[in-house]
Design a protein around this nucleic acid. Structure first.
Lengths: 229, 229
DNA sequence: TGGCTACTGCCAGAATCTGACAGCAGGCTG
DNA sequence: CAGCCTGCTGTCAGATTCTGGCAGTAGCCA
């Protein structure tokens, strides 16, 4: 196995073990000596991989992902940049910042001529949707990723407010509003919650008892065969 | 210089020379022997780089770009995927297809757990804007990239139709419409053209006499200090 | 036909990588 | 505190890979 392949393997290994792993264990898994492992880790860190090692514990890969070398056509790059610009204009601050960062990283490695094209912004994105949420959508996305319950106050279309605990599993971006899709404990059914009507959002660390993907699949099925509203 | 760095350099060299370059010239530029160059080219082709070599001519890099290894955080990947999904839903067919392809390429190299997250689509994008253009926006983007004139029939807000020849330099994506930003030869001024009011679009191979970036800069200046409409 | 080029196999020397050992520093446990 | 585990660095001989030169085949063009 060539060295460059092994480096990618190393990252995969670190991704699998979420907890700290000792260098010896990694070396065994890859079939190399501990000394070589240290060298490989140093190489990866030199390339920007966020690997952290602590004496007495082991190595952890901070959440993130290394994209291997990848070919994109001109139009594919344009599509990615345009899309990221759109995301950057969304009111979700964390996601917007992430899009901006990603764009900066891509721009940093583009050859000069392409970067000029992109800096010149021949593809423009319109103004952001106007509805502004008072809540941090980043918390919602985090809850979705980790399958945690969310609590909040919801003001429905009629203006009536109610306290909800829900199992969020998807987030929809529409023209003017963002919508949290979740299983509602109160209604015992799937519900959509417009983000601009959510208040006092509270992230909990209670894991909900279903897998996110299963919920998503069920919810999709209900969309195909709509039942009584 | 390590081998992997040199491989990236090779791509940059090929990008610079748009015309076919002989292997010997490339080898000189990189300071390596011709034999090693052949090996490097073979390696790059093995990694998917679209390099073509023809006997008697030289090497050409088909338009496109190789992204070197790059670290993205979870949120950055989410932002890119969400943005690309949005682009994929746009009515511009070529761009939409490019976004879909880019997503497929990214998904192909993601570790399993992350790919599942993305396949499961916890981030959804609303339905595409409804206004459908009868024209191929791909032609417009191509004209912008190559700085070529465009001819078409335009029906303005009042319903009056006119024949235009314009120098397009930007394309705006708004909530419901796409807008071509260009210098209009008839009006001798900057004009915006809603794509859904354009008919009989004709791409020409006439280069317009200004640089795209200069036009863009001027146009931006007019936005800051609006003159008489 | 001749000239230019891409491309492949081969081989010896150069460069790099690897594994093993030794040693230092920091956290944890008893 | 001592003992243990771990990360991390330096060194060095042997294994591995890379490199450059040479020879030969094949395709394109004039």
């Amino acid at each position: 196995m060539s060295r460059s392949e092994r480096l990618l393997d190393l990252i995969q290994c670190l991704r699998r073990h979420r907890r700290p792993v000792s260098g010896q264990a990694l070396a065994d898994e890859l079939g190399i000596s501990i000394r070589t492992l240290y060298r490989d880790i140093a190489t990866l860190q030199g390339q920007g991989a966020p690997i952290e090692g602590e004496a007495g514990l082991g190595y952890v890969l901070k959440p993130g992902f290394m994209l291997p070398p990848l070919m994109f056509s001109d139009e594919e790059i344009e599509a990615i940049v345009l899309g990221s610009r759109w995301v950057a204009k969304q009111p979700d601050q964390r996601l917007s910042a992430a899009a901006t960062n990603a764009l900066a990283k891509i721009a940093a490695v583009l050859p000069d001529d392409l970067r000029e094209d992109l800096d010149a912004s021949t593809l423009l994105v319109g103004p952001p949707a106007k509805a502004v949420e008072g809540i941090d959508l980043g918390l919602v996305r985090q809850a979705i990723r980790n399958e945690r319950k969310l609590g909040f106050l919801y003001r429905d279309a009629g203006g009536a407010a109610s306290e909800r605990v829900v199992w969020p599993f998807a987030l929809g971006f529409f023209d003017k509003v963002r919508v949290v899709v979740a299983w509602c404990e109160m209604r015992q059914d799937f519900r959509h919650f417009r983000a601009d009507r959510i208040a006092q959002l509270e992230a909990t660390d209670m894991r909900y008892p279903r897998r996110r993907q299963a919920l998503l699949k069920e919810w999709r099925a209900t969309l195909d065969k709509p039942r009584g509203s």
